[in-house]
Design a protein around this nucleic acid. Structure first.
Lengths: 242, 242
DNA sequence: GCAATAGTGTCTTTCAGACAGTATTAA
DNA sequence: TTAATACTGTCTGAAAGACACTATTGC
């Protein structure tokens, strides 16, 4: 083989001559609704695990997908109608046994988006649904998708300790209390609001819109904020307690 | 398709009926020698990138590899003769263009090991070599392996800020000065030895062997340490300055 | 003795936790 | 006014940085 030119090698190369493995991309899409963390599940229309709920995702389309991120976004867009504002690769899982069709590898991403942006699309179909993450984790899901949700949650938890990444699960404008409550839900513990606000001021990745929330309710009307670009990359030097 | 039973579907399923993509596992193996960080490169014996230096790794063997980690370890063992004591998945990279044979995905790992454990095996062959990481990054490597080394280094750098993971690049017993010097090389900056030692004491993941180093040289003879099990999982709450 | 390396004592600085206090709103 | 929510002031405490100090070795 090494006697050939590279051109001749490539001309004669056919992937189907080899025992190869399945490769898929699956995403755990999170959002926040009523102070709870939700995740998007889709009902499988094909074997294997026909009719089971699982993660949005699937095979790489070697014609249409230019890379893994594009593949993740395509599958998410097919389900939600939009490209989520935050997408991060979690890890890859591959083994001989995770898929009955054969050796299979999946690249897991997690994504964050505002719930309102896609709620109408999803409510109109019955094979896609938002479920509270805790509830999703109690279901029997397709493949090892339950572990993948757990891994994504674990990653999101770490990020909540030293970054403001969870902000991408909120709508375009939000209050600091909403953001704090989201971090608290992700971490499963309460945070001192003074500490939280101090960190946000230090990070300088959010900006006040100048407006106050129009939500009716008792108490002082909170200021509205939006994220500055690059907020996802900010990293605090110290973690919150855990 | 959804009319069939799962059994019938699986019986008729043949991966070669579909356009699929290549999947490989590559590892960036680091070690420390004379206070410098080295990485292991292998010379390719096949097309594409014939005779280029690149990372140890390759295709998943659907018969022999049970999962991705096993695949990474197998390829590393083929080159070094041993299974490295630390192996961590970095990320996956996949695109239409990264391999001339077609759509290709690679799962990148990085591994740490003591140099001495495998030096004789490697010195006896001419298609494997340890190179200073800085030097490897200046070469023209196969595929996108240069970026993969950069990503692995970046991950290792983060770990050096909040963990003692780099210790796995040292021999079984080592001095705290050696460990500190390694962290300094990875981070590219000096560390206050008082801070470093305080953190180590707090972490409680190293233990004194009771011996002193037998290395001849000026100055006080340093105490020898070894890692306790579970040291890889310890995470400091605060980062070192960067 | 000196130079070099290992290791310690301790003061300063930074920033999270705790929690009481003030501000603004609806009823 | 009261209750609720938003937000601030300020003290404490934990741990990193700075750096001078002591300890042990080879020459």
């Amino acid at each position: 083989m090494s006697q050939q030119t590279e051109q001749a090698y490539l001309a004669s190369y056919n992937i189907k001559d080899y025992d190869t493995c399945l490769t898929t991309v699956d995403s755990v899409l999170f959002t926040v609704l009523n102070g709870e963390l939700y995740t998007l599940l889709v009902r499988r229309a094909n074997h294997p695990y026909l009719a089971y709920w699982g993660l949005p995702g699937g095979f790489i389309d070697v014609q249409r997908d230019v890379d893994l991120t594009a593949c993740a976004n395509r599958h998410l867009a097919e389900k939600t109608g939009i490209i989520p504002p935050y997408l991060e690769q979690v890890c890859s899982t591959g083994s001989k046994t995770r898929d009955p069709r054969g050796w299979s590898t999946t690249v897991t991403y997690y994504a964050l988006m505002a719930h309102i942006q896609c709620t109408t699309d999803i409510d109109s179909v019955d094979d896609v649904q938002w479920l509270p993450a805790t509830q999703a984790l109690q279901m029997e899901l397709a493949f090892d998708h339950k572990q993948m949700i757990e891994q994504a949650l674990e990653r999101l938890k770490q990020k909540a300790l030293y970054s403001l990444v969870p902000v991408y699960a909120l709508p375009e404008t939000f209050t600091l209390s909403e953001l704090q409550q989201l971090h608290e839900v992700i971490l499963g513990k309460s945070i001192q609001s003074k500490s939280f606000r101090r960190r946000i001021e230090l990070a300088n990745v959010l900006e006040e819109t100048g407006e106050l929330s129009t939500q009716k309710g008792k108490g002082k009307r909170p200021a509205l904020y939006r994220v500055k670009t690059g907020a996802a990359d900010y990293r605090f030097m110290r973690n919150l307690e855990h």
